[in-house]
Amino acid sequence: MSAEAAEEPGEAVTTRGTIGVELGRRPLFYAVLAPFWAWLLVRWAYDWVVEPGTNVTAREPFFPTEPFVAAGETLRGVAAGAPAPVGGVLDWLAGGFDFVAFGLEALPQLAAGAWVTVVLTVVSILAGLVLAVPLSVARVYGTRAVRYPALAVTELVRGTPLLAQLFVLYFGLGLTKYVREVPGVGVGVLPDTAVVVGLIGFTVNSAAYQSEYIRSALLSVESGQLTAGRAIGLSKVAAIRHVVLPQGLRFAIPGWSNELIYLIKYSSLASFITVRELFFRAEAIGNETYLFVEVYSVAALFYLALVVSASAFMSYVESRVAIPGLGTTGR
């Protein structure tokens, strides 16, 4: 709850909420996450390097599904002859094997979708940061002429749904027809047209929210710090750059964890503008097989794995850049 606790009284900073997972003392998480990432990285490498030509839906899983299908059938056969309570349990177990077999079948497509999800998330948060720093500095230290436009942009973005913003870019402005002309789009593993439009949308959206995190972080840097910087002869820009930002950006790290998690989850909205990310792939499999429970469960596990990984990664970053007396513990 560091984000809430850090708020000054009377400062209603819009946060997007942490998931509240605390890592570090949980070997089980790593026991699950490490193989997940190992598999995912190998899968991506294999699909691009070894078999780049294969259509996503035609990709074969690494793990054989037959043993699970066979085990399920055997169990069901046994269950038919067993007395009622035992038979029920066996049937349930057989369902478990079916689920694993189906999940394995779906993995290659979901891996392809997860790649797009990761690209959307990582690129948007970084590009959003590049825009957010000047936006927030403008709002805290800028003159009226830059403060109000910066305020207007952030408020407009934060006051409307992300989905509406994606619709404006994709349907309203028809950005696809401009993006299509850009050389390199959609070549090889580079993002295709729809992904680029999604990236633009998420970047703008994230920039607005990040600027809000950074703004409140900058305000929480004591004013004496800027004064001391000016007192040794630094210009205002240099003092902000060398004294205020290094501290403020550290204060903003809990906000970024929220933002990263938010982007992972909300990148799923890109499926509405035909971006073939994780949710899009899951939905497509569901529409084809009608196994909605199974495919959405697997998709949910994928998202959880990504979110928990992001959370762990950000804790690591926070501990790496921690300075005694600065940051969440210091407040």
């Binding site: 004496g224 004064t227 000016r230 007396g325």
Partner: peptide, 16 residues
């Protein structure tokens, strides 16, 4: 300000 040094009551050391 380069030519005039200043020492503050509450130090104002750069915390980072």
């Amino acid at each position: 300000r380069r030519r005039v040094g200043m020492v503050f009551q509450d130090f104002n050391l750069f915390a980072h």
